[in-house]
Design a protein around this nucleic acid. Structure first.
Length: 275
DNA sequence: CTATCCACCTGGCGGC
DNA sequence: TGCCGCCAGGTGGATA
């Protein structure tokens, strides 16, 4: 699930547990996720205080006072759990524990292991290969209709594929691309380069609104999850089109939501409302 | 450079 | 019940 809103919700949920706290130990229960852990991963983080938690696109960034930064990606199935008091035995897919000096454990579980964790530093981060090609954050100041239009200019791929490409705009995934295109009335099949001017304006606004609403929804459900063994990472949202194949379009109610496959991934849309 | 395809994994679900 | 194929929120790297 984790797209920008989920990662942002996880970040906020972990802040009270980690920011300002010293990591007593980091336990790795396997040598790799999608990529190997750096050899000195646990060692470089242990005994060091967490300065702050950040986010870049769908990457969580744990900034340490040492100047090291842990880069964490949740992949498709990764989630975090905040544990305190009696820490339960780890399950089959509980691959990493971050244990703080004051007795809290942040546990990372990821059945499919598409997630990853690696290290960089404050000096190196902007040049890190996982970070350097990431485009503007849609909720940040660097994102507006002109920036989006410029990124899409000359692109011959469908707008659906262009929005999934993290270097055009960062943080969108399969769900929120469908939702954003629905809200802006743009067909997922439309060529990216034709999304200019008013359409780019509309899409920009739709992306921002969809993401902000999802974060607000995650923030409210977070209340139920932040208690001792709350899981962070999977939340329910009310989608207009994603997963709604065959249901009447919530806008026109005459057409049914269609499901198509684009570059190997499902897209949901209303062929009546989206052009 | 751009666009597309594939691999990386496990688990859950529907169909037979 | 059991087995099988299919599907799932991501993305970096290979390929053309």
């Amino acid at each position: 699930m984790p797209e920008l809103p989920e990662v942002e919700t996880v970040r906020r949920g972990l802040q009270p547990a980690l920011e300002g706290q010293t990591l007593k130990s980091v336990i790795l229960r396997r040598p790799n996720l999608r990529i190997p852990f750096p050899k000195d991963f646990a060692k470089r983080l242990s005994g060091v205080k967490v300065e702050r938690l950040g986010r870049r696109a769908k990457y969580l960034l744990m900034h340490m006072i040492s100047g090291d930064i842990a880069i964490i990606h949740l992949g498709m199935s990764g989630h975090m759990t905040v544990l305190e008091g009696d820490i339960p035995e780890p399950g089959k897919h509980d691959h990493v524990d971050f244990c703080t000096a004051n007795g809290v454990t942040v546990r990372f579980c990821d059945p499919r292991r598409f997630g990853l964790m690696t290290l960089t530093t404050e000096e190196e981060m902007e040049n890190h290969k996982l970070i350097k090609n990431i485009g503007p954050d849609p909720l940040g100041n660097g994102f507006n209709a002109d920036v989006l239009a410029a990124a899409l200019e000359g692109r011959g791929s469908p707008i659906k594929a262009a929005l999934l490409d993290q270097k055009n705009v960062s943080g969108l995934g399969n769900i929120y691309v469908s939702e954003s295109l629905f809200r802006s009335g743009i067909s997922p099949k439309r060529l990216a380069k034709t999304v200019q001017g008013a359409r780019a304006e509309k899409l920009t606004r739709a992306i921002r609104d969809v993401l902000n609403e999802a974060i607000a929804a995650g923030g409210s459900s977070l209340k139920d999850h932040v208690a001792p063994d709350g899981e962070l990472g999977y939340f329910q949202h009310n989608f207009n089109v994603y997963g709604k194949e065959g249901e009447p379009c919530p806008t026109c109610s005459t057409a049914k939501i269609k499901k198509i496959v684009q570059s190997g991934r499902s897209t949901f849309y209303c062929s009546n409302c989206q052009r």
